[in-house]
Each structure stands twice: as structure tokens, then as C-alpha cells.
Amino acid sequence: MSLYLKEGNSIITGDAAVIDDNKLILANPQFTLDLDMVKESLRRLISMDADNYYCYHGGET
């Protein structure tokens, strides 16, 4: 589950993403049952163009 925080224009990505080289990428794709759905979820999170992304496993941007 990911959460959008209107105040602050921020997203808590939960387990959906990690930060690598200052970019959001898939978190642990080997543990998903539906890789296409995970990729679509990540695409949606990125398209929201939030000011801040907070990842459960892997920092913040």
C-alpha cells in the first residue's frame, strides 16, 4: 500500500519502491506474483510527480 499526503505533496511508497541512484525503482521484484502490475504501480507513483517519495526499504528523494 502506498499513501499520498496532500500536505507536502509527498508519497509514502511502502514496499512498492526503493531509491537507487536517486531514482525510484522496483523493490524486490523477485517477491511479487504479478510483475506487470508492480511495474504499472511504480509508473503511476512516478507520474504523480510528488515533491517527496519516502520508501520503506531504501530512503527518500
Results as ranks from 00 to 15, higher is better:
10 S>M: 09
43 R>K: 12
10 S>V: 00
11 I>A: 05
49 D>M: 01
37 M>F: 12
45 L>F: 03
1 M>Q: 09
34 D>R: 09
18 V>H: 01
59 G>E: 03
53 Y>F: 08
4 Y>A: 01
32 T>D: 15
59 G>K: 04
10 S>P: 00
46 I>W: 03
1 M>F: 09
28 N>W: 13
14 G>W: 08
58 G>Y: 06
36 D>S: 13
47 S>N: 09
1 M>E: 05
26 L>D: 05
54 Y>A: 08
57 H>V: 06
45 L>T: 02
39 K>Y: 11
51 D>Y: 01
25 I>V: 15
49 D>G: 01
57 H>W: 11
51 D>V: 00
55 C>V: 06
58 G>K: 05
33 L>D: 15
44 R>P: 00
35 L>V: 14
10 S>A: 13
41 S>F: 09
23 K>G: 05
20 D>Q: 10
38 V>T: 06
51 D>K: 07
12 I>W: 08
40 E>L: 11
22 N>M: 03
50 A>C: 03
31 F>V: 10
40 E>A: 14
19 I>N: 03
18 V>E: 12
51 D>R: 01
15 D>A: 11
33 L>Y: 13
60 E>P: 00
16 A>F: 13
36 D>K: 14
39 K>E: 13
7 E>L: 10
51 D>A: 08
28 N>D: 15
57 H>L: 07
58 G>E: 05
29 P>S: 10
61 T>G: 08
32 T>P: 14
7 E>D: 15
8 G>F: 06
19 I>P: 00
54 Y>L: 10
34 D>F: 15
1 M>A: 10
31 F>G: 12
44 R>S: 03
30 Q>E: 15
61 T>M: 12
19 I>D: 01
26 L>I: 09
50 A>Y: 02
54 Y>Q: 02
7 E>P: 05
38 V>G: 01
3 L>N: 05
22 N>Y: 09
9 N>R: 00
33 L>K: 15
52 N>K: 10
51 D>F: 02
61 T>P: 01
34 D>A: 12
44 R>T: 07
53 Y>K: 03
35 L>T: 08
32 T>N: 09
38 V>S: 15
14 G>E: 05
27 A>L: 09
48 M>Y: 06
32 T>E: 13
16 A>L: 12
12 I>G: 01
50 A>N: 02
49 D>E: 11
59 G>R: 04
14 G>L: 07
58 G>D: 04
40 E>P: 00
31 F>M: 13
23 K>A: 08
49 D>R: 05
38 V>Y: 12
28 N>R: 12
43 R>W: 01
